[in-house]
Design a protein around this nucleic acid. Structure first.
Lengths: 208, 208, 208, 208
DNA sequence: TCGTAACCGAGACGGTACGTCTGGTCTTTTT
DNA sequence: AAAAAGACCAGACGTACCGTCTCGGTTACGA
């Protein structure tokens, strides 16, 4: 959001309506689900929300950041932090949840389109990193750290690289569409990551 | 290209000028490098190439497929098929070449933007799979198959998944920008893939 | 019209459609008659004419000049060049025709609104002088010159001032609305002008 | 002004600030002189006067009536009631004063633009007639009536028509710009009006 | 002296139209 | 028949103001 509310600032003039904000996000989310980001038009959103275009531009500078906020209404809470007792089980659970969201909900389309849009819009890219990638990775990091503290994988394993090995292939198939996001795919990716980790391939000290 | 020239067809009228085609692709490649895909406009390309818009629409149906052709002028030959004698060495060479192209040449920007555009344009997505993903993966497949025939990794390893594990993380960092495509990153990704493969994690028969 | 057609120019590309031009002028004239110049919107005109906005902007730079062309479709031919045999009779006929147009036709409203608009738009003001004031005055000048050649009024009478004395009061009442454009008013204005002219008040040599 | 202050009304609440009113009129007059009526915006005036838009709308219903009040700060007192002893001399003095105001002061622009605006805004038109045309004509009427009582022109002369003959041509040239408001023009118009009047052309009883 | 009603500045609100830009198509003349 | 040129319809863009409204706060009266 682009709200310029500085904490210690005196508030003057009519305050921005939260109701208007909600109406805009709802309309944006609906259009996003129905017709996708490219077909989503500020004019449409305004009309659907029963709102003037200015009320949108006042809050969001690009349609990408608006779409991001609409996307985030539901996305984050759809990504669980499992605790099955084993790294293997946790990673399968995490990846399955992501794949389900990407393939079976209206957020999937928004997900790919937002990543796409972020390639053109640096503001959106920064917001995406901060508001989606950051929180998600923080959550996944805990999964790996629990495995380390359980002794499942070596201390000093490069968690960042392992997270990229987990989600990179999934995004890869989602964005390129060259192969399916099957459950077998999920299981094999996890198996590879866990095997590599247990072998200590992600521990820098060993020769690298 | 979307050229509708059917091989056994009798050609009538003025034949299409190859010079026009080259001028269009050159103009498109230049604009792509200078200002990116989003700012690239059919009108711009036509003006820059000194060509009518019709001459472009006659050959390409969308700006995505035009950009793809401009991109492919140089891309494929920048991706080598190394033969260092070890899987580890080959994979590092392959990934380094890709990262160099993505980060240090004007093709890098086009690469991300084409992937982005393919999320909206099914024609481009299909062309991308067929003309970029297909050839590239065919080449990488040989690397893994050589390793199998050398006995480095088990027979029956799931090469498709291994390729996704190799390039997925790289695309992931390129597209999200949350972490750098450093050489250390490359080495660790390769180490993990090789370790996982040697451990037989990509061989389906084992329990999975 | 703002058509940039230079006579000796080579014409390239698709020529402008006369049909489009007619449709635009017709739509503009209709809206002008129904709702006036201020309520006339380029968007409305385009929609009513079934034409893109660009096709209007390509031809006219401001809505004033467009309205002027729409107005001129009919105006000039509504202003007669009478020949009753006396200056008095001719002037009454001229003024009556103008008053009828101003008060009883849809052009009346356009007339006042165009004069109004010309106060803000220098292009329109210039066009108005050249395309309305010029031709009209040329016609009226003939009336006075015939009176001079008949010997009704002195040679050397200042025709320009006399024309202003004839039409000035009429525009005055039309624009300010402080008194009616009655037939009695017309007759008295003409009587005053003719009396003054016969008295030689418009001949500069006499003392002035 | 559109102040709804009914005399016998009980006044409750905070009274309107005269200082606010002055600030608004000053800002309006300045903008009017600098950029004209069309460019004058309620938002601009409010910003310049350091005042909320509501404080303007509370006092004036349209920008035309606001501009009229700003115009009237100075206009009326710039129009003198001369007494040279002859009709000819008085009329020349009156007309010269008007022409000077129209051509050499910042009120000139406002004058034409207000007449223009009044063509669209009936409230402004009514106010213009009542607050500008009325007082001005009342003053000029005295000039003619003095000439009648001196015996310069016949009793029963149609003063209204004569005033239109005097100012009509002047407004005509000002608004259409087809000819200059020169001093020679002023003298000839006055000469014609006086000659016509003396010849009794404005006396209805004679045949008309 | 205290309430209350109308004022005040600020700025958000739903709208409308602006003039520009681009998309993809169509219509000319020229090659 | 293909080419360059450029007109065509369509419609979104982001901006500017409109006239209204809602805030927090001020001012002066009259109960």
């Amino acid at each position: 959001m682009t709200s310029p509310t500085i904490p210690g600032e005196i508030k003057r003039g009519r305050p921005r309506s939260e109701q208007v904000e909600r109406a805009i996000l709802r309309a944006a989310a609906d259009i996003l689900a129905e017709r996708g980001l490219e077909a989503m038009t500020i004019e449409d959103v305004a009309a659907r929300a029963g709102v003037g275009k200015t009320s949108i531009y006042r809050r969001w500078s690009t349609k990408g950041t608006l779409a991001l906020d609409a996307f985030l209404l539901d996305f984050l809470q759809s990504q669980p932090l499992p605790d099955t007792g084993s790294l293997d089980g946790d990673l399968v659970a995490v990846l399955r949840a992501w794949v389900r969201t990407a393939r079976e909900t209206s957020m999937g389309r928004a997900l790919t389109e937002l990543v796409a849009q972020a390639q053109y819009d640096p503001d959106l890219a920064a917001a995406w990193r901060q508001r989606v990638v950051g929180p998600t990775r923080a959550q996944h990091r805990r999964v790996f750290e629990r495995a380390i503290s359980r002794g499942e994988i070596p201390t000093g394993s490069d968690v960042d690289v392992m997270m990229d090995l987990l989600f990179g292939p999934a995004y890869h198939r989602l964005l390129h569409g060259h192969a399916p996001l099957s459950d077998r795919f999920i299981r094999r990716v996890v198996a590879m990551v866990v095997a590599g980790a247990k072998a200590g391939a992600a521990v820098p000290t060993t020769s690298r």
